[in-house]
Design a protein around this nucleic acid. Structure first.
Lengths: 144, 144
DNA sequence: GTGACTAGGTGGGATAAAGTGGTAAATTAA
DNA sequence: TTAATTTACCACTTTATCCCACCTAGTCAC
């Protein structure tokens, strides 16, 4: 189960350690893609295959589907996790998500997201403020 | 059924003891999530699985669902109860709920809530007040 | 009522694991 | 062949986990 947030550092070789809690579930072969809301997505290789199949079902005729697919496929990179749990983040993805030294690795359902930690904190605060819709959704999920 | 409130301390290693009365029902594997009114929810692992399935039903196409799921999954953490009944509270959750040394653990139906004890007392007073005025109204209407 | 016993809660030290930084080897490019 | 970049490996620091000991409050026996 991919849940929780972890603050890690990108070292000067662009290495990031995958939080230990995620390693077993994620395996050794990952796919990193540009995400939504200015973060990156990390999927397991397996999960990525599923997603890419779904994406390719979208009609290539519609221009916005085409561009969305370019966005996801074009930016997707396969990375390997080394034997102490680190992977190498390509420069262009790092730049794209505006990542600096400190990043937040966030488990969300079937994926792990990588955020600039400052942006992540701002984002969290923003969501928290919307307490009304929060309560509504919590209720919908059977939490209340 | 989880009922009652207990005031416990978070020690300097962020450990909290689960009230003895809750241990049997909660088991060894818990999931702590953000709650409402600035508290945290503790669910059994089993209960959380149910909730996460519901959460997964929310479409990712809508931005507010996306952010809500980030908030809930990213804000959740699986914790293990050690053999004397304590669990480790991650820093980011402690911060989020504004917890300091003393916390209130409150049993509510299928979950346990963690409150900053000061906030909990304020909240209780508020509710009591409302109950008083409600009672007055009921009395005025000849119901009690 | 007094004292021993038990259970729940708290604190701290030792050990293990996770995260980070760096060096050496290997591969590729010039 | 040499230089530069990448990959693999090693080492250190910090954090988490486990285990044991203590304290307090309530209970039971005497």
């Amino acid at each position: 189960m991919l849940i929780g947030e972890y603050i890690h550092t990108i070292d000067n070789k662009n290495r990031v350690s995958l939080p230990a809690k995620f390693r077993k579930e994620m395996g050794k072969s990952l796919v990193v893609t540009p995400g939504l809301d200015n973060c990156l997505f990390i999927f397991t290789k397996k999960e990525w295959v599923k997603i890419s199949e779904k994406l390719s079902e979208f009609s290539m005729l519609a221009a916005d589907n085409r561009s969305f697919n370019r966005f996801m496929f074009g930016g997707a990179t396969e990375v390997d996790v080394d034997n102490i749990g680190r992977f190498l983040l390509p420069d262009f993805l790092k730049t794209r998500a505006g990542l600096t030294e400190k990043v937040a690795l966030v488990g969300v359902q079937n994926r792990v997201e990588i955020w600039n930690d400052t942006k992540w904190n701002q984002y969290k605060k923003l969501v928290e403020k919307q307490a009304d819709s929060l309560a509504e959704k919590l209720g919908g999920a059977g939490m209340l």
